Amino acid sequence: EEWMVEKALMVRTGLGARQIESYRQGAWIEGVHFKRVSPSGESTLRGTTWYNYPEINKFIR
C-alpha cells in the first residue's frame, strides 16, 4: 500500500490525528508525503487527504 487515508496511517504508524496534522503542517511535503485529491481526481484543498506511507516511513527513519 503506497497511498492511504489518515485512519489507515494511524493504524500503521501509531500516530494520532493531532500528530499527523502537526507533521502535515510542518515537516511533511505536499505531493511527497501527502496529497489532497477531490472525487473528480483533481488536486484541491478540500479533497480527501492521502498519505504516502513509504515516504513517511523513510522520513521517520
Rank of each mutant, 00 (worst) to 15 (best):
N57G: 06
Y23S: 02
W3I: 01
R61C: 11
S40H: 12
W50R: 04
E6H: 06
S38C: 12
E2T: 10
E6A: 09
E1N: 11
A27H: 09
Y51H: 00
T13E: 02
L45F: 08
V5W: 06
E1P: 09
E42S: 12
I20R: 01
K7E: 15
F34G: 00
K7Q: 12
Q25F: 07
E55C: 04
L45R: 05
W50Y: 14
V11L: 14
S40E: 14
T44A: 12
M4G: 02
V32D: 02
E30Y: 09
I29R: 06
W28S: 00
I29M: 07
Q19G: 03
S40G: 12
I56G: 00
T13L: 07
G26V: 09
K35L: 07
E55T: 05
P39D: 13
I56L: 02
I20P: 01
T48H: 07
E21C: 08
L15I: 05
I60Q: 04
S22H: 14
V11K: 13
F34E: 01
G16N: 15
E42F: 07
W28Q: 00
G26C: 13
F59P: 01
A17L: 11
E21N: 07
G26H: 14
E42R: 03
S40F: 12
K35Y: 06
P39Q: 11
G26D: 12
W3D: 01
E6F: 10
Q25N: 14
F59G: 03
L15C: 04
I60M: 13
G16D: 15
W50V: 13
R24H: 05
S38D: 14
V37N: 07
L9N: 01
W3K: 00
K35D: 03
K58R: 09
E42M: 09
P39R: 04
S43G: 12
T44M: 10
P54I: 13
V32S: 03
A27R: 07
G26F: 13
G47M: 12
W28P: 00
G47W: 13
A8S: 08
M4S: 02
Q25P: 02
L45G: 14
Q25A: 10
S22Q: 13
I60C: 06
Y53A: 04
M4L: 11
A27K: 08
I60D: 03
E6C: 10
W28C: 01
V5L: 15
N57W: 13
W50F: 12
A27S: 10
E30Q: 06
V11R: 12
S43T: 11
A17C: 08
W50N: 03
Q19K: 06
E55G: 03
V32L: 10
R46D: 15
Y51P: 00
G14M: 04
S40Y: 10
K35T: 08
T48Q: 12
K58I: 08
E55K: 05
G26L: 10
V37I: 12
E30K: 04
V37G: 09
S22L: 13
R36N: 14
V11M: 14
S40W: 10
L45K: 08
P54M: 08
S38F: 14
L15S: 01
A8W: 11
S43F: 06
T44F: 10
E42D: 14
R12Y: 09
G47T: 13
V37A: 09
A8Y: 08
S22W: 14
